[in-house]
Design a protein around this nucleic acid. Sequence first.
DNA 1: TTTAATTGTAACAAAAAATATTACAATTAT
DNA 2: ATAATTGTAATATTTTTTGTTACAATTAAA
Lengths: 135, 135
Amino acid sequence: MNNTRFATAIHILTLLAKAGDEWVSSDWIAGSININPAMVRKEMSVLQNAGLVVGRKGKEGGSKLNLSQNEISLADVYIAVKNSEVLGKKNLHTSAKCPVGKVINKKLDGIFSETDDLVISSLRKKTLSSFVKQF
Amino acid sequence: MNNTRFATAIHILTLLAKAGDEWVSSDWIAGSININPAMVRKEMSVLQNAGLVVGRKGKEGGSKLNLSQNEISLADVYIAVKNSEVLGKKNLHTSAKCPVGKVINKKLDGIFSETDDLVISSLRKKTLSSFVKQF
DNA sequence: TTTAATTGTAACAAAAAATATTACAATTAT
DNA sequence: ATAATTGTAATATTTTTTGTTACAATTAAA
């Protein structure tokens, strides 16, 4: 996760949460994060696929939450945006001739997925609602 | 951590652990991981700075562990190689005019560092020794 | 019905990060 | 002396991330 996707997603969802029932435009959100509106729409598309938000095209269009704030956990957000394991990538192409190289990825798998699970179950306890309350 | 540095470091340390008191060359390690020897030496340099290994130049040179296997925790390794927080980067340049944009990074800090701490304390319980025993 | 605003998405560009390669001075055992 | 090796710098290449531009499709409202 050497990217801003989680931070961006949380920022988006926080603005939507605070907007309540209104449709919020990608342009307005982009202004708050200070990134390109198209980037907002790309990430919004991911959040839509995860079922967290809904969008509407056309004049007076925009996005809003598809669930109530306390039905959305930060784990839902993390899972939607994550594109690598917490501990990173493995070396593919390790040597089949070396007793260590041959099996190390299988051994690393345990630690890697255990670590991912740990993070997810921790984030599972945190809701968008409780995060937004801080503002 | 969208890189292979943790996996590479663990691979290196596993080979050193299995080699016991011998000096292991970067060339040999590189062959097991299937990466360039200079990459191994770069990462080795990081592990040296962390006090986990020692190197020796010259003919018959190489590297070996500086501590016993059960004095090295996977947290030590993670800390040595990590270059981003688990949940990624924050958006710098968020809008000072927006009540959310203005303070969101401070609020994210809490979640970000809590998550990092969680991962580190989990890895703290795992030793190189117990990992290496699997081979 | 026309106009204006907006999404959703694709295609492309640019910047940043990760990985790979090459080279070589310094060092050390033989 | 010779050969092998590290440590590191410089550079190149590849991959990932971020940014930009464009536009068809859609929708509300004038």
